[in-house]
Design a protein around this nucleic acid. Structure first.
Lengths: 154, 154
DNA sequence: CTCCGTGCAAAAGGTTTGCACTGGT
DNA sequence: ACCAGTGCAAACCTTTTGCACGGAG
């Protein structure tokens, strides 16, 4: 059940916070709660809307900060490039992207093997026009620089 | 060679513009020229920086508009969701995304077939930690609403 | 010649930050 | 009690838009 998963995720979050000495605030709990209950991918503002009644006087800044914390702890993901600016790509052929988790560099990958993926059927009623594979990892430079495990230099 | 490709892309752009009655301005040409010369995925601001000396008095607004035009004509792609807000995803398991090209809705897709993709080797020195498949198309609702081919309502 | 594109500046989101206060540990 | 988190408001960054002018078709 989703309910059970949500409860697990919340427990997991609490454990992780205690381990890392991160204060467990009401805001963070409610925000995570609102997030795990959803199937869509809400924006920060939508999260704010969702929890505003449960947290009177809540500030949008807090939503942003709490979401950031949740991402750091690892209980949610942020779906978008870290930089909030759009990027433009002159390569209009089918290609894929390699993104560096550390420096956020994006490089193209033209790889016939990835172009040949057979898409499964019944994609929730979507009519697929195109697809691309998004690979995330460490670029050569960042691999040299550090041997990171955790995100923050903490 | 990349040079030849760039020249071809420029010619292609000019042809498409003439076909569609889109004025061919210096700005658009220079901006496209700066873009096809690069391997990275510059932001609008980086494009502005790149062409600023060649186009004195250039406005950032023009860069945005020109980029938009280039995307419409199809000679470049925009790499990012149209909505400029970050989205948060409580699902931290391996999963993929279906994005609607019209309403920009994003839904999760958990599909074992896509989890089993064998990654090719020699990924430009990257150490891959994770990957996901990004499918783009029309969601059921938008498929009903219109029969779009072109972006603009002209 | 007519329009559309451009430049400028202001507006419109989205996100971050400084500061005083509150709440978690 | 201490330190980090919160709320508020202002700052900041990216992108869009209105308007007058100039260049493209």
């Amino acid at each position: 059940m989703k309910q059970a998963q949500a409860a697990l995720k919340m427990e997991n979050f609490e454990t992780l916070c205690r381990e890392r000495g991160i204060p467990l605030t009401v805001q963070r709990r409610v925000i995570l709660g609102a997030l795990v209950g959803r199937e869509d991918h809400p924006t920060a503002d939508q999260v704010y809307e969702a929890v505003a009644d449960r947290l009177p006087g809540l500030s949008r800044a807090t939503v942003y900060r709490a979401l950031e914390t949740l991402v750091e702890v690892g209980v949610i993901h942020r779906a978008s490039h870290l930089g909030n600016a759009a990027r433009y790509d002159p390569n209009t052929e089918r290609h894929h992207h390699l993104t560096c988790l550390k420096c956020h560099k994006v490089v193209d990958l033209e790889e016939a093997a990835l172009d040949a993926i057979r898409l499964p059927g019944g994609l929730q009623g979507f009519e697929i026009m195109d697809y691309s594979v998004h690979l995330q990892g460490l670029c050569p430079e960042c691999r040299k620089k550090t041997r990171p495990l955790k995100a923050k230099s903490a």
